[in-house]
Design a protein around this nucleic acid. Structure first.
Ligand SMILES: [Mn+2]
Ligand SMILES: [Mn+2]
Ligand SMILES: [Zn+2]
Ligand SMILES: [Zn+2]
Lengths: 166, 166
DNA sequence: TTCTTAATTAGAATCATTCTAATTATTGAC
DNA sequence: GTCAATAATTAGAATGATTCTAATTAAGAA
């Protein structure tokens, strides 16, 4: 049994436990979608998750991808990330972090937070009680190789076409 | 001439100048939409701006409201505020601030920032250059009177109906 | 004016997401 | 294992915010 199998097994076990904790069942589709998410640290949209999932399991449906992503969010294994009004992205890094959006390539990167998110210099009015804080940063990633994603629209479309014509 | 007229006049002048600065023309629709936005400190959606605008100018169209809000954003008089995937809201407070979203009533409130947004304790990776940071807080506003907006969906719908049946 | 260009408008189109209703899979009791 | 009960999957329809289109109207320059 390879390291990879070990990793997948541990992943599946964690998934099954978390799902059970929320009264949800483990299924092969859910395992596969979760694995697809964990395979890359980018923050794919539902559509991208669908395409990647379909590459190995050609029978999976978009509806199931949406349902599964929902289930993963409900049981605390995945977070939704929204950038403007674009399609929701999914993040499976459950550490406390914030997001960087590259306006050049459209990529989203995780940024670790130094201190706890609590001790940020914000004075909360007395009549408002905070439950959660979200920080997002936008800018450009000046990676010499060019960024993770190509120039947003064209790049995403090209990627989609190439997967469809397989 | 009343104080109110003075205020409106100054508002219109600022608007005209800002529009001109972006190569855009001043129109009565734009003046009216801008005035509607400045009349309340809440963060209305395009649809809400449309309803409020139509209350006084029944001939204005939704398309114009969208176009105008766009123009106002382009010339730096208004900012867009996104909460999850819900309809975009519009904010005409141009000071540096962040947003509080009440999960109970759906209202959005401004929160002043103590220090400059620059000295927040975040270590940026070398290959990422930040241009802008957004902070949003979610929680509940425990106002004894109840919050600005009623319980989200029902409240918004009721408000819409009441305006339509005038 | 009159010409040119921009703004407004109604309605169609788009696109991510949610919903519906039918089918299939999983679970637990027997 | 059999069999109901319940949950998950699925295709496709519906939704809703926004954008686009193409026609009309208004504004500014000459
Ligand atoms: Mn992330
Ligand atoms: Mn604001
Ligand atoms: Zn980039
Ligand atoms: Zn509230």
């Amino acid at each position: 049994m390879s390291d990879r199998d070990h990793a997948s097994e541990a992943e599946a076990t964690e998934l099954a436990e978390r799902l059970a904790g929320s009264g949800l069942r483990m299924t092969s589709q859910r395992e596969h979608v979760f694995h697809v998410l964990r395979a890359q640290t980018d923050h794919p949209t539902a559509d991208e998750v669908y395409m990647r999932s379909k590459a190995e399991r050609s029978d999976i449906s978009m509806a199931t991808v949406y349902n599964t992503l929902d289930a993963l969010v409900k049981c605390g294994l995945v977070k939704q990330v929204n950038v403007d009004r674009a399609a929701t992205r999914y993040c499976c890094n459950m550490q406390d972090h914030c997001h960087f959006y590259c306006e050049e390539c459209g990529g989203v990167h995780d940024i670790e937070l130094s201190g706890g998110i609590r001790d940020f210099p914000i004075r909360m009015p007395r009549d408002l009680s905070a439950r959660q804080m979200d920080i997002s940063i936008r800018g450009a990633c000046r990676d010499p190789k060019g960024c993770a994603r190509k120039t947003l629209k064209e790049g995403v479309k090209a990627q989609k076409d190439s997967l469809e014509n397989e």
